[in-house]
Simulated assay, not measured.
Amino acid sequence: MPAPNHTALDFLLTRRSRPAKTLTTPVPDKATIETLLTAAARTPDHGKLEPWRFIVLGKPALARLADFVNARGDALGMETEKVSKARDQYANADLAIAVISAPKPSDKIPEIEQIYSAGAVCLALLNTALAAGWGANWLSGWPSHDRDFVRDGLGLADHETVAGLIHIGTETSAPPERPRPDLAAITTWLDT
């Protein structure tokens, strides 16, 4: 029988994202962020392609992006409420890390597997931040899928996309537990 890591297993069985709107200062310092990124970068990536990268967004960058959300929402003719909600995600944040999916040309590793790897990096970063005692939440929203926003606001190349924005800070309140999936309804056992 394997020797279980009960602490890690208990963490994974009870982990809970913290709503981004409940996160505040202080936020991790540069050395702590580098530790969190180092752990997240240990994600399997099928062929060591590293088909993702990070953009650390501090308060000034988030404020600039919040203004850009308004400009893009106006340009797209979006509803005020939808624009305001997206803007608040940036304006009210103190730290977010954008995980950028950046697939590499490969004859062996399909692009979809590289994109999945970027998603796994998001979860690894989220869980690492939570395990380190920070509050964290994985968000996206319409701006992260708008080509003009990600190109002009984040400097993404044409082949790059935002896999997720991981908001990290000090939690102001513990979130309540939420309903979890019915394991029996989502699991198929094939024994033969």
Results as ranks from 00 to 15, higher is better:
A3M: 13
P4V: 02
N5T: 04
H6D: 11
A20T: 05
L23M: 09
P28R: 12
D29L: 06
K30A: 13
T32W: 02
L36I: 05
R42E: 01
T43L: 03
T43F: 03
D45F: 04
P51D: 10
W52Y: 13
P60A: 11
L62Y: 01
A63T: 12
R64Y: 00
F68T: 01
N70D: 15
N70Y: 06
G73Q: 09
T80M: 09
K82A: 14
V83L: 10
A86H: 02
D88S: 13
Y90T: 00
Y90I: 01
L95I: 09
L95G: 07
L95D: 03
V99T: 08
A102L: 04
I109K: 00
I115Y: 00
Y116G: 07
W134V: 07
A136C: 05
A136M: 05
A136D: 04
G141Y: 02
R147F: 12
V150Y: 00
R151V: 06
R151C: 02
L156N: 03
D158H: 07
D158C: 06
L165F: 14
H167I: 02
E171K: 12
P175T: 06
P176Y: 00
E177W: 00
R178T: 07
R178D: 03
A184R: 15
A184N: 14
A184P: 10
A185N: 10
W189N: 09
L190G: 00
D191R: 15
T192K: 14
